[in-house]
Design a protein around this nucleic acid. Structure first.
Length: 335
DNA sequence: TAACAGGAATAAT
DNA sequence: ATTATTCCTGTTA
């Protein structure tokens, strides 16, 4: 759990950086507004996989994290460090699934759930989580945090990932050939022109990235950020860095990174037994798609991804668990 | 029907 | 040279 708190305390944007905080917050509000907005819900979730409303899930997922295992001040339940057993429903699902189709997010104006914690606390918490998620996405997509530096290819990756992550309507080629600089220069209106359906929300997301990059530059030009070597959970988060090491990422590294972010990817892949390294791919198509985005392999699918996993058998990196189950694999690991 | 196993050729680095 | 991708045949649940 340790990875969250140091990062947050070091960022603590609410007091340090009033202006960008508000910028980021307005971005979030825009995004959240998109979720509950009146006629925003024409599009259907592109994959039939889960019935989530993309954006509310986005906002909620951060809220959810405030109570999740690796959060700093989270109220730990009775079975705090208990294992994640092979039972159904990963921990974040109840929260996300609980949203009524009407978008009853009880958290913006009234703050119904915030009696015990000040709104500011929560906000800075959310901001911190946003920053962390952006960093994860950077590693995952192999792009820089600052959108201004993006190549057209990076822009496409970001678009694909954002659509996918937040279930936006597909934007297609609307932003083809645009570099990060041009993208950042575009107004919300221009976004809407290019992509009438989700352009505004996309713009809000980009706004968040821009603000985050801005903040990052202000706080720590030479980021050393949180590399807390939380010993508590053994090898799982030890040598997964994957981005600092140079070299193209390996599939097993990629899978571990997804596994490390159950808030974001727990619906696609999750641990069945973290100690033993047993994990299950819940949504093979989505995992393959993410992998394809990461490797710039648009034709990637689970058939091919799984072939790559099978190559690990003889190398002793991944194997099938003793009781073989569909979509379940195990990292062999001598720690 | 989708996941699984693994051979083989090719591509990417 | 290693690793991943692509395509394939055949098997399993």
């Amino acid at each position: 759990m340790g990875s969250a708190s140091p990062g947050l305390s070091s960022v603590s944007p609410s007091r340090l950086l009033p202006p960008p905080d508000t910028v980021l917050r307005t971005g979030l509000e825009k995004v959240a507004a998109g979720a509950v907005g009146p006629e925003r819900r024409d599009w259907r979730p592109s994959p039939p996989a889960t019935p989530e409303q993309g954006l509310s899930a986005f906002y909620l997922s951060y809220f959810d994290m405030l109570y999740s295992e690796d959060s700093g001040w989270a109220t730990k339940g009775p079975g705090a460090s208990a294992r994640e057993e092979p039972s159904e429903e990963p921990e974040q699902c109840p929260v996300i699934d609980s949203q009524a189709p009407g978008g009853s997010l009880d958290l913006a104006p009234g703050g119904l759930m915030l009696e015990e914690h000040s709104l500011e606390q929560v906000q800075s918490m959310v901001v911190g989580e946003v920053l962390k998620d952006i960093e994860t996405a950077c590693k995952l997509l192999n792009i820089t945090a600052d959108p201004v530096d993006w190549s057209p290819g990076n822009v496409q990756k970001w678009l694909l990932w954002t659509e996918h992550q937040y279930r936006l309507p597909p934007v297609g080629k609307a932003f083809q050939e645009l570099g990060g600089k041009e993208l950042c220069a575009m107004s919300e209106e221009q976004f809407r022109q290019r992509s009438p359906l989700g352009g505004d929300v996309l713009h809000a997301h980009l706004d968040i990235w821009k603000s985050a990059a801005w903040m990052k530059e202000r706080t720590s030009p030479g980021t050393v950020h949180y590399c807390a070597s939380t010993s508590e959970d053994s090898w799982t988060d030890s040598e997964v860095d994957s981005s600092c090491s140079g070299q193209p990422i390996h599939l097993w590294q990629f899978l571990k990174e997804l596994l490390l972010k159950p808030h974001s990817y727990g619906r696609f892949i999750r641990w069945l037994n973290k100690e033993k390294g047993i994990f299950k791919i819940e949504d093979s198509a989505q995992v393959a798609r993410l992998w394809g985005i990461r490797k710039n392999r648009p034709a990637m699918n689970y058939d091919k991804l799984s072939r790559s996993i099978r190559q690990y058998y003889k190398k002793g990196i991944i194997r099938k668990p003793d009781i073989s189950q569909r979509l379940v694999y195990q990292f062999v690991h001598p720690i």
